[in-house]
Each structure stands twice: as C-alpha cells, then as structure tokens.
C-alpha cells in the first residue's frame, strides 16, 4: 500500500510490483488524463509533477512515489477556470488530436511557473521531450510565447 496525494486529494493504492505511476494513475485510479504513447520516457504524454518536479510518470515506479504529491493534467485548471496555458492552447490552435496535449499542458505550466520570461528557444528546449505528431509545434509555440513574455 502506498499513499499519494493527487491534485490535492489523498489516495491509498496497492500497485502491483514494478507498476509505473502512469499505470497506477490510469488503471487503478481512473485518472485517464495522463497518456501512454511510448512507455519509454520519449514522448512526454504522461508528464506529471511529482513533488513539484516534472517527470514522465511512465518512468517512475509507483512505489517510489509513496508519500509524494502528484499533479496531473486534471489538476492544472482551477476548477472551471482554465489555466492560462490551457486557454492559450485552445485559442491558438495548439490542440489537434490532443493526445500530446495533457503532457504539454503540464510541462508548459511548469516551465512558466519556474522560468522567468523564457525565450522561444527556451520554450522549445523545455518541451523537446514532448512529441506532438499533429501540429508541427508552431501553434503550440505561438500559444505559449505571449504567456512567456508576461511571466
């Protein structure tokens, strides 16, 4: 049994052996926002914050997260109010199929919270671990650049 605080809500779960945090989130807790597109740490679709650090949840063993606070994409908005990254992604056309979107929302909101005024190249570097196959990335960068200038 491990204890996780996910998006502020405490949970007690019993992951199986070497199960990843991603599997625990999805298959045991029904939190389907985090996506599984590679399970190898290559695509960033499963990105979450673990005690404030950005991680690929597919690479973290659930048991190693015992006691941690986890923020998933479901915890990024403030109730009905979208996070500015979410708002900007929708408005700028940064979302097509959306499979990469949860990971990008988590990673980009983390970037803006931790890095003052990132440049375009800083944004690209920070998100280089998030693969998007649909957009060619341009619309996502256009969504984030104005926010970076504000931050």
């Amino acid at each position: 049994m491990i204890r996780l605080t996910i998006n502020g809500v405490p949970h007690v779960v019993d992951p199986m052996g070497p199960e990843s945090l991603l599997t625990t989130l999805r298959d045991r807790l029904g939190l389907f926002g985090s996506k599984n597109a590679c399970e190898q740490g290559e695509c960033g679709s499963c990105s979450v914050l673990l005690d404030g650090r950005l991680v690929c949840s597919c690479l973290v063993m659930a048991v190693d997260a015992d006691g941690a606070a986890v923020t998933t994409v479901e915890g990024i908005a403030d109730g009905e109010t979208l996070h500015r990254v979410q708002e900007a992604m929708v408005n700028a056309g940064g979302v097509q199929c959306g499979f990469c979107t949860p990971g990008i929302v988590v990673a980009a909101s983390h970037l803006l919270a931790t890095t003052p005024s990132p440049t375009e190249t800083d944004i690209r570097e920070a998100l280089a671990g998030n693969i998007c196959r649909c957009t060619g990335y341009g619309a996502i960068v256009r969504a984030l650049e104005p926010l970076a200038a504000e931050s």
Partner: peptide, 21 residues
C-alpha cells in the same frame, strides 16, 4: 473564421475520452 474546436477544452483538461480510456 477560426472558432475554437468543440473538443478543445476537454482535451486541454485531460477529460477527452480516447479509445484507450
């Protein structure tokens, strides 16, 4: 025009159900 996509908000919130969900 370029209205926002109707599935955009569920997608950014992680609430859009894919076949794997």
């Amino acid at each position: 025009t370029s209205p926002i996509r109707p599935d955009g908000i569920p997608k950014v919130r992680g609430e859009f159900a894919y076949s794997s969900d």
